[in-house]
Structures are given as C-alpha cells and as structure tokens.
Simulated assay, not measured.
Amino acid sequence: MVVPTEPEIFLYDLACTKNVCFSPVVWRIRLMLNYKRIAYRTIFLEFPDIEPTLKKLGVDPPESPSGSVSKYTVPAIQHVPTKTYIMDSIPIAQFLEATYPDPPVPLSSELGREIEAKSRDIIRATFRISVMPRQIGILSPPAQEYFRRTREALLGHRLEDLLDLDKEEQSWNAIGDGVRAAGELMQKNKADGPFVLGAQPTYTDFFIAAFLQSTRVVDEGVFQRIFKCPGYKEIYEACLPYMEKKD
C-alpha cells in the first residue's frame, strides 16, 4: 500500500468550475513544485475570498517596485515545516529554489530575460483580447460578479464587447511578428534540448508553459493559435510531465 505523503506546501490557487488550475501565475509555481517533486496540497479560493482568506492567515503582501503594498492575490503558499506564508510568484519561486535546490530551476538568464520581456506584451495582448472575456465562462456565479465588476471598471465597457471577431483577428495579426520573434529566441538552444537553455527547464520555460496551459483551460481554440508557433510548441510539450498534477 502506498502511504500518502503529507504536504510540505499548501498552495492557494484560483478556483474555477473545471476544478483545475487556470491562473498563469499560479501555474508557474505549480510547474516548479511538480518538477521538484515537492509534496503539496491545493486550496482553491474564489475571487472574492482571496483577500479575506489571506488576511485571516496573516499573509503579508510584498511591496511593489514603487514601494506601495501590493493587493492580496494568488499564488500564495504556506510552507508547513517553517509555518511561513509567502504571496506572489517571484518571492515564492525564490523561496522554493533556496529551500529545495535539487533539481535546480535557474530563475534568470540573459536569454530568459529577453524572452520574457518580448513575451509579456504578447501575453498581455492575448489575455486582453481573447482570454479575459472568455474566462468568465469558467467562473462560479459569485466569482463572475466580482470578475465582471472589477474588469469592466478597468475596461470602461462590457467584457463581451471584446469578442468582436473582426477586431479580435486584427489584434492577433498585430502581434504576429512579436509571437514569431519570441518563438525564434526560444529555439536558440534547440540543438541541446527543447528548453530555453537546452536540456533542463528554467523558470522562463515555466513562464511560457504556464501562459499556454492557462489559455488552454479557458479556450482550446485560443491555445492552438499560440501552440502551433515554433518555440512555444516545443517548450509546452517538454513541460507536459510537470502539468499532470493540476488540482
């Protein structure tokens, strides 16, 4: 009989009606946990419950680059052995790499920084034009109300107004060159392996795979538009073994 492993990490994730992870920032940490084979348990939170839950736990939001305190968000973790709570993907990744260094996940490289910089604009555009207006379809009613109220306040119009197919197609055409340029950088070391630096994954690989997997959970068609591009496909497929635990 296999004895269940007690979790060393409680991972606070964003809930959806599919009962799997769909947040790209949480997926970055989940990929890292899975790759390092760290025993963890997921606690899913609805959008409106994130702040009160983390406040009650005594989680301290990290400071933003401007010095102001960030809002409460996921991912957040509790490291059970040290009773430590950490919020936000970068501090969590740094903690995991320092606490569980084997196998290593390089958190930064010159090539990785370049890829992430080029990819951020693509990811922002993709989520705004194609993913965000479709996310509401996988949320519970209370989360839908919260999501609609907060996002539409930022947009200045209804989420559904983003789903004009002609405008969506124009937006995709506008980011096409950037998608191809980032994909070419991802293949710079393809002779040595499928990952950004070759044979072993880095945080940049998890950054890319997390974006793709999040998109796939929301909408398969949107996922396929990016997945078919050289570079993205190879990294995603190489990271599939670290996506098996998703709930």
Rank of each mutant, 00 (worst) to 15 (best):
R158G: 06
A181G: 00
S64F: 11
P48T: 10
M87E: 05
F195S: 05
V217Y: 02
E237H: 04
S214P: 04
R120T: 13
K118N: 13
V25F: 15
D88L: 01
N173P: 01
E97G: 07
S130Q: 08
D121F: 14
R128V: 06
L107R: 08
Q94D: 13
R30Y: 08
F223M: 00
A117G: 10
L96K: 08
S108V: 10
P104L: 12
L159A: 09
G183D: 00
G176R: 15
Y242H: 13
D247P: 08
P91W: 12
I29T: 13
G221V: 08
F47H: 11
V179M: 14
Q213S: 10
A76N: 11
R37A: 12
D60Q: 12
V80E: 09
P81L: 03
L240S: 08
V131H: 03
R225A: 00
Q94P: 01
L11S: 07
A191M: 07
P103D: 06
T42Y: 08
G58N: 08
A98F: 06
A181F: 01
F22Y: 15
A117I: 11
K233N: 04
L162I: 06
F207T: 05
L165V: 15
S109K: 01
L185Q: 04
A93W: 06
F127L: 05
W172I: 06
K36N: 09
A238D: 00
P101A: 10
I9H: 14
E51H: 07
A98Y: 09
F195A: 05
S70F: 11
I226P: 00
F95G: 07
I86A: 01
I122L: 13
N34E: 11
F206M: 14
P106I: 09
S130V: 02
C16W: 04
K71H: 13
I50Q: 04
S64M: 15
W27P: 03
G221Q: 03
E244Y: 06
D13T: 10
A93I: 09
R37D: 12
K167Q: 11
S89P: 08
L31V: 05
P65L: 09
I92W: 02
V20M: 04
P101D: 12
T5L: 06
Q224R: 11
K188T: 05
